[in-house]
Computed example of a mutant assay.
Amino acid sequence: MKTLSISISDLEFNKFGIKESKLNFTDFVDIVSKELTRQNLSKCIKLAEKYGLSKMTMDEITDEVKAVRKDAKNRN
């Protein structure tokens, strides 16, 4: 087994909710993946608000998806 040493600031340590100074790689990847998912979700929410998508109902979203799919079929 190999050992990988990574240095992070106290701020990052706390931000990621890390509880121990030694982690296995799977746990490290899980922690980083969760943070990246959180950041991407935040970006998506901001974009949805910017373009007015956050106010759409599920029915409106479904209709939009259907329209895009229909248009894609007609182009082929």
Score class of each variant (00 low, 15 high):
Lys46His: 08
Asp10Leu: 10
Lys46Gly: 03
Lys46Leu: 10
Ser33Asp: 10
Leu4Ala: 02
Leu23Met: 02
Gly52Ala: 15
Phe25Asp: 05
Leu47Lys: 15
Lys55Val: 14
Leu23Glu: 02
Lys55Trp: 01
Asp59Met: 06
Thr57Tyr: 05
Gly52Pro: 00
Asp30Met: 13
Thr57Cys: 07
Asp10Arg: 13
Phe13Arg: 05
Gln39His: 00
Thr26Gly: 01
Glu35Trp: 13
Val68Asn: 10
Asn24Trp: 09
Lys34Thr: 10
Ser54Tyr: 08
Lys22Asp: 06
Ser33Leu: 12
Leu11Thr: 08
Leu53Pro: 00
Tyr51Val: 06
Lys50Ser: 05
Phe16Ala: 05
Ser9Gly: 06
Lys70Met: 10
Asn24Glu: 07
Ala48Phe: 04
Gln39Met: 14
Phe13Met: 03
Phe13Tyr: 11
Lys43Arg: 10
Leu23His: 04
Thr26His: 14
Leu23Ile: 01
Val68Met: 11
Lys66Glu: 13
Glu35Val: 07
Leu47Trp: 12
Ser5Lys: 08
Met1Cys: 08
Ser7Met: 01
Asn40Val: 00
Ala72Gly: 15
Leu36Gln: 15
Asn40Cys: 08
Ser5Ile: 08
Ser54Ala: 07
Ser33Ile: 00
Gly17Lys: 03
Glu35Gly: 04
Asp30Glu: 09
Gly52Arg: 12
Lys43Pro: 01
Lys15Val: 07
Thr62Asp: 15
Phe13Gly: 03
Ala67His: 06
Asp63Thr: 11
Leu4Trp: 03
Ser21Glu: 14
Asp71Pro: 00
Gly17Trp: 07
Ser42His: 09
Lys19His: 01
Leu4Thr: 07
Asp63Ser: 14
Lys34Gly: 09
Ile61Met: 14
Ala72Cys: 11
Lys2Gln: 02
Lys66Leu: 13
Val65Gln: 06
Lys34Glu: 04
Ile31Met: 06
Lys2Pro: 04
Lys43Gln: 09
Leu41Phe: 09
Ser5Cys: 04
Glu60Gly: 01
Ser33Asn: 15
Glu35Thr: 02
Ala72Gln: 07
Tyr51Arg: 10
Asp59Thr: 10
Lys50Ala: 10
Lys2His: 00
Lys22Ser: 12
Met56Cys: 12
Ser54Asp: 15
Cys44Val: 11
Ser42Pro: 01
Ile61Glu: 09
Ile8Tyr: 03
Thr62Met: 04
Lys66Met: 11
Met1Asp: 09
Ser54Trp: 13
Ser21Val: 15
Lys34Arg: 14
Lys34Phe: 02
Met1Lys: 02
Glu49His: 07
Lys50Gly: 01
Val29Cys: 08
Arg75Asn: 06
Lys19Gly: 00
Gly17Ser: 05
Glu64His: 14
Gly52Asp: 10
Cys44Ile: 11
Val32Thr: 06
Val68Lys: 11
Ile61Leu: 14
Glu64Ile: 02
Asp63Gln: 14
Phe25Glu: 08
Arg75His: 11
Ile31Asn: 05
Lys22Met: 02
Leu41Trp: 03
Glu49Trp: 00
Lys73Ala: 08
Val29Pro: 01
Asp30His: 04
Phe25Ser: 09
Cys44Asp: 07
Glu20Pro: 00
Gly52Lys: 12
